[in-house]
Design a protein around this nucleic acid. Structure first.
Lengths: 218, 218
DNA sequence: GTTTTCATGTAACCCGTTACATGATTCA
DNA sequence: TGAATCATGTAACGGGTTACATGAAAAC
């Protein structure tokens, strides 16, 4: 898997910055946040938490936690983790950084997920960095495409074409976001743009009253 | 990165099935094929080649190879790899397999890249498997989306929305491909469909006469 | 003549998954 | 009562990247 780049640690810090949590729940949140479609393994999560504890960025407090219903006693003792002062400082520092690392494939997602806590300047710088990173990639792909198109069979060609389209789409998405960031005061409320694109996006299962049993990655 | 699932080995087998190559060139082809945007490292490639050799699937022949131009002598001795009979057999077996493994995220790309050498039945089964895999994922995302939308800030929401749209787009892409596979005899020539989507796709740098210096991933 | 590209490798490290181990609680 | 979910971990393994090492040929 994508080694390097420490996407897990900042993600954990970020989630714990919002609210303290125990490992099990953290994992669920992380699965959503990271969007990696194979669930994060415990063999990865718990050692990481340990690491963060040993670095003094978080502490784990053993709490039996009274269950909302049933009123009776506590369920199994769970370890609720929360940020320390140092951890908070560390996270804020991560948030304010806007170097190339922030817009590489691995990190961009996490950084974006915490844009709500990132200041506007940094946000814009990251979005623009990401954009130029992608257009640069676009150039490379187009070049290779034009250089090798006659040697390729239709499927390879189609795969290439589709990949190209994906990146183009992503650039346009970024354009929308950047526009939105620039037209700061009372612009359209994010996720409205992309005119004439008729994105049906989220709608299925519209009526569900949010009471489904909490399931893996759901 | 994405550990497991052996995407490298089949890819190498497949490329060598088309034509013998030395490691350095193989890497370039692999970078295109795999579409992973960080170039494959030699520290990964050469050991893998070694593994394949030890398994008897490929052999490396030391050849000085006379350069096309200059007519004079051979450049540095390079090791040209080619499939053995066993390697060919192995690859063909991989090609004919159409289990769930074939349509998981990691493998689908490679499998698709070799569709030109895959029989129509297998192709269709893989495409359909992939499709149902994605729609299944779509359901999961939509559920979680509807369950957590009010608790999320606009950026997290937008990220989620964008992810959802990406998958939806991919499903539609698959629909086109499946249609195409089904309407076998003389259908539209792949990559034409997606009506009213006006995809500008490949065009930039149209005139380049394919003589640019071979560059990394290009 | 120097830089870039070609060309092949090795060893250490990182980080993630798999598989294993354990046990409480809740739901059918 | 038995299955599923909650909850926390450990150890082995795997495979990829980084960094290192080396050198020839081509391009500038």
């Amino acid at each position: 898997m994508r080694g390097r780049a420490d996407v897990l640690e900042p993600a954990i810090l970020g989630l714990l910055h919002e609210t303290p949590m125990h490992g099990y729940e953290l994992r669920k949140r992380l699965n959503l946040l990271l969007g990696s479609f194979r669930a994060l393994s415990y063999g990865s999560l718990y050692p990481c938490l340990k690491r963060l504890v040993s670095r003094g960025w978080i502490i784990g407090i053993d709490s039996p936690s009274a269950p909302p219903q049933h009123a009776l006693s506590g369920k199994r003792a769970r370890i609720v983790y929360q940020l320390t002062a140092e951890g908070k400082e560390e996270f804020l520092q991560v948030l304010s950084s806007s170097g190339p690392a922030a817009w590489e494939d691995d990190n961009f997602g996490v950084r974006f997920a915490f844009f709500g806590q990132t200041d506007a300047d940094t946000r814009l710088r990251i979005l623009e960095g990401r954009r130029s990173r992608l257009t640069e990639r676009l150039e490379t792909i187009r070049l290779s495409f034009n250089r090798t198109r006659e040697r390729m069979d239709e499927y390879t060609l189609e795969l290439q074409r589709h990949g190209l389209e994906q990146v183009e789409r992503e650039v346009r998405w970024l354009d929308g976001l950047i526009d939105n960031e620039r037209g700061q005061r009372r612009a359209r409320p994010l996720g409205a743009g992309h005119q004439a694109d008729a994105h049906p996006a989220v709608d299925g299962a519209t009526g569900t009253p949010a009471q489904t049993t909490e399931k893996e990655r759901g």
